[in-house]
Computed example of a mutant assay.
Amino acid sequence: MDAQRTTPTPDLPLHRLQVPLPHLLPFAIGSFDAIGPLSRAGFPHRHSFYEIAHVTGGRGGHVLDLAHRPLAPPQLCVITPGQVHHWADADGLTGHVVLFNEDFLLGSTQDLAALRTLASRPALRLGEQAAPVAALLTDMEQEYRTLPAGYPGVLRASLHILIARALRAEDPGDLPPPTGRAAELAAAFTRLIAEPGGVHHSVASCAQLLGVSPGHLQTLVKQATGLPPGALLRRRQTLEAKRLLAGTELTVRQVSREAGFADPAYFCRFFRRETGMTPGEFRARVDGNHHDPRITSIAADPGAP
């Protein structure tokens, strides 16, 4: 039930979901042992799929887009496609790992928005949701193992409930993620720029791909998120540059190109304006310095996942 490891850029592997027969769903659930050694990978990597890790035991830490949190089970760690994460000095990890592609959610805008909210935190304390979440995951694993009639529908419904309970743990006073045309378009735009190579898009090219005018995209994205699409794209470019500077040996010129900039000099000015540091200063400071707000501020922003 392992993920497959490929490498789109030097030293930053991409894991793809591989589900064994008899399952034909883009979904898997199991213990850390059942999912395989990549479920506890201690090196920075990213996924082409979603992961929800329910940690019930173990020690160490979880690092998600440079933000480090020590493990404090029971907790959830939610990782969305494109985010860079790893387990730091983790030992004895127990619990459940849930893996799924976006199409398993059947286009649920509300669930996708909720997952982006949850993935802005390296670790989520469960509090009073701990027992219901543990029972739900046990039921989901049983469905997945025994394949009773109608199990795909049960798993989809259970995943929706899991996401809803995780949101309750995130903040019991939170309102559900917004819905409607503005929210749908903003979610589609966010996913588009988060795809591999998405930082190379312009706002105009995104509008064309999404079948709307640039002005319409501008209006609805700002209505849904409070920020214009250009600002979200800049945040995405900054985050991608941070990921590559921290997790690879790419030169600044190579990072510039991968982050969507043709001119390395302009990239350096852009990066300093957005972070307060040059790319070289950021790379020198990032190792082990997870609490510097200049390092983690973009990664922790809800607009960034």
Results as ranks from 00 to 15, higher is better:
L147M: 06
A131C: 03
E102A: 02
T117D: 09
Y144V: 07
A169S: 08
E170M: 12
A130C: 05
V133F: 12
L106W: 08
A114S: 14
E170W: 11
P148G: 08
F100W: 06
T146I: 05
L118S: 08
A157P: 00
Y144C: 14
F100D: 00
E102K: 10
A119D: 09
T146L: 09
A166M: 07
R125A: 15
A131I: 09
Q142D: 04
R116C: 05
A169R: 10
A119I: 04
A119F: 02
S108V: 07
A164R: 14
G153D: 14
P122E: 11
E128R: 05
D139C: 09
P132L: 09
P122W: 10
N101V: 02
A149W: 00
H160K: 11
T109M: 12
R156G: 07
Y151D: 15
T138D: 13
L106H: 12
F104Y: 07
L118N: 11
V154N: 10
L147R: 01
R116V: 01
A130D: 14
S158Y: 00
P132F: 02
L159D: 06
H160A: 15
V154Q: 13
Q110H: 12
L105Y: 01
E102Q: 11
A134E: 15
A166L: 11
P152F: 04
A119G: 14
G153W: 04
L162W: 05
L126G: 03
T138L: 03
A130K: 03
A135G: 03
Y144N: 13
V133N: 10
E170I: 02
E143C: 11
G107N: 05
P132D: 10
A123S: 15
A166F: 03
L167N: 00
L137P: 13
V154K: 12
R145Q: 14
R116M: 01
T109H: 05
A113P: 05
N101M: 08
A123G: 15
L115Q: 00
G153V: 09
V133W: 01
D111T: 14
T109I: 11
V133C: 08
R121S: 13
G153S: 14
D111M: 15
P148F: 11
E141Y: 13
N101Q: 15
R121D: 09
Y151G: 05
L106M: 08
S158T: 02
Q129G: 02
I163A: 11
F104K: 02
T138Q: 07
H160V: 14
P152I: 06
Q110T: 15
D111S: 13
L159I: 04
G153E: 14
A119L: 01
Q142T: 08
T117G: 10
E170V: 06
H160D: 03
A157E: 10
Q110R: 15
S120L: 04
L155F: 06
E143W: 10
L105C: 04
I163C: 12
P148N: 11
F100K: 00
L126T: 14
L115P: 12
R168W: 13
P132R: 08
A157D: 07
E128Y: 04
L137V: 09
E141W: 06
D139G: 13
